[in-house]
Simulated assay, not measured.
Amino acid sequence: MTIREACMQASSFLRAAGVEDDASSAEWLLEHVLGCTRSELFMRWGEPFPGELRDRWRAMLERRAAGEPVQYITGEQPFYGLTFRVTPDVLIPRPETELLVERIVELGSKRWPGGSPLVADIGCGSGAISVALAAACSSWNITATDISRDALDVARENAVRNGVGERLKLFHGDLLEVYVRERMPIDILVSNPPYIETGDIPGLQPEVRLHEPVLALDGGPDGLRFYRRIVEQVDLLPAPPALVGFEVGQGQADFVAELIRAAGHWDEIGIVPDLAGIARHVIGLRKN
């Protein structure tokens, strides 16, 4: 059996199991098991599939056929040009969150040119946002919090593997509580909090509902619990952050924008669409 034939058979097997992205899943898993890139995979298309890898390959395909996300099977997910380790303790970083990182880098660099603003990534999960910001902005002071110690372990590993382990400070705690307790002045607050309505969780895709952590998904009865709590806690800080950025669920942007507008700390409120045109991020900026 050639590598090409193994890929075709795998795609057919996954399709028969009801996996919608059967072809891409087969290719991604094949790249991982062979330890090669996509272009290298095609160059090796006609080679025999290594016999010593067949059991491992079969086990990975069975996990995908059962609905487990590819990222948890391989343990990796690319994000913002970096590679992140992911486990069932953290959400899988999504491409749309890269747009939030881009906007924070853009606005923060203009507001603090050559400066060292203190950044707080609230509910950091895998550390995708905070690690990406640390990699992109070497002079910034990056911190992050999560209520899950297991998630913080993953974030710490990702900081080290992406070369920013000594620059990312991680805190265990609920939202802003550590910053409030320690009277830490935050310049930039960024968060991709849980925003799925509790009643919608049973209807999520099995890949999400059965494998990603509910703690990182459940945003309360209307999905907006954590936005309210974060904005409330901002009033307990020494001063409100000059820049805030939130990722939101579909249909939530207007409410979150009004929430931070009503707080009265930010002069400019903007909504950023994702590549599908969905209002995905809400940004608040104080001019002075």
Score class of each variant (00 low, 15 high):
Ala216Met: 06
Gly223Trp: 00
Tyr195Ser: 10
Pro213Trp: 05
Pro206Asp: 13
Gln205Ala: 12
Val180Cys: 12
Phe226Trp: 14
Val231His: 07
Asp222Asn: 13
Gln233Thr: 09
Gln205Glu: 14
Arg229His: 13
Arg209Phe: 08
Arg229Phe: 08
Tyr195Cys: 07
His211Glu: 08
Ile230Val: 15
Ile188Val: 11
Leu215Ser: 12
Tyr195Leu: 06
Asp187Ile: 02
Pro206Cys: 03
Arg225Thr: 15
Pro206Ala: 10
Phe226Leu: 14
Pro194Tyr: 01
Val234Gln: 11
Gly219His: 02
Pro202Leu: 08
Val208Arg: 00
Arg228His: 15
Asp222Gln: 06
Arg209Ala: 13
Gly219Met: 05
Leu204Cys: 05
Pro193Glu: 11
Ile230His: 07
Ile188Gly: 08
Asp218Pro: 03
Tyr227Leu: 12
Gly220Thr: 12
Pro206Asn: 08
Ile186Phe: 02
Gly223Met: 00
Arg229Met: 13
Leu215Lys: 08
Asp200Tyr: 00
Ile201Met: 05
Leu210His: 10
Gly220Gln: 13
Asp187Pro: 02
His211Trp: 13
Ile196Met: 05
Pro206Ile: 10
Arg228Val: 13
Glu212Ala: 05
Asp218Arg: 00
Gln205Asn: 06
Val214Glu: 14
Gln205Val: 02
Leu210Cys: 10
Val180His: 07
Asp218Lys: 01
Val231Ile: 15
Leu217Glu: 11
Gln233Asp: 14
Gly220Asp: 13
Asp187Gln: 01
Pro213Phe: 11
Ala216Arg: 03
Ser191Pro: 10
Gly223Cys: 09
Leu217Gln: 08
Pro193Phe: 01
Ile188Cys: 03
Phe226His: 14
Pro193Cys: 08
Pro206Ser: 09
Tyr227Glu: 14
Leu215Pro: 10
Asp222Leu: 02
Gly220Lys: 03
Thr198Ala: 12
Arg183Gly: 06
Val208His: 04
Gly203Asp: 11
Arg229Asn: 11
Met184Ala: 03
Met184Asp: 01
Arg225Asn: 13
Glu232Phe: 06
Gln205Phe: 02
His211Met: 09
Pro213Gln: 14
Leu189Gly: 09
Leu189His: 06
Gln205Cys: 04
Val208Trp: 02
Ser191Leu: 07
Gly203Arg: 00
Gly219Phe: 04
Arg229Trp: 10
Asn192Glu: 13
Gly199Glu: 09
